[in-house]
Amino acid sequence: MPDAVGLELIAGELRAEFGDDAVVGTSYHREQACVQVDPSKVIRVLGHLRARAEHPYPFLASLHGCDYLPEAPRLGIHYELLNMRTVDRLRVKVRLDVDYPQIESCVELFPSAEFQEREVFDMFGVVFTGHPDLRRILMPEDYEGYPQRRDFPLGGELVIFTHNEPASPGWYR
């Protein structure tokens, strides 16, 4: 992990490269570095971090979504970057509004993101523009709704055992 100073250096580098509004904020919590960037510039930021000269992050370990329900831009997408040589991890975070969640796909940079972006689309409804095959992956094709959002009901139903079957005739239909 880059330490807190290293994180600020990375943030400064990104600001110098892509403008002051590229980096929304940084956080260093429990020895984990996270830089939050502007959604419109995330692909350029990722491309820069991937191909940096002296300390690149060429491996995308994981990409996942998150729903921070009470907060203002509700959805979040995390890119867990990894440098295998120095075993450094850096999290790039993007916050998206829930109304029209759309972000550029990073499949061309990191082919490993293909399934994971499909999963985020399936679970949170984030549309990744430029994704080669953006379909539902885990839920059935004709499913409606995005189950991992916090306002989606957990679902499930009361299990009716045989002893109370007469009370609810036709439950099996």
Partner: peptide, 17 residues
């Protein structure tokens, strides 16, 4: 048999449905 611990949107609550 009954859905088990997974009482959620994705699991059929018992195969005897």
């Amino acid at each position: 048999s009954s859905g088990g611990v997974f009482s959620n949107y994705a699991v059929v609550q018992g195969a005897d449905k």
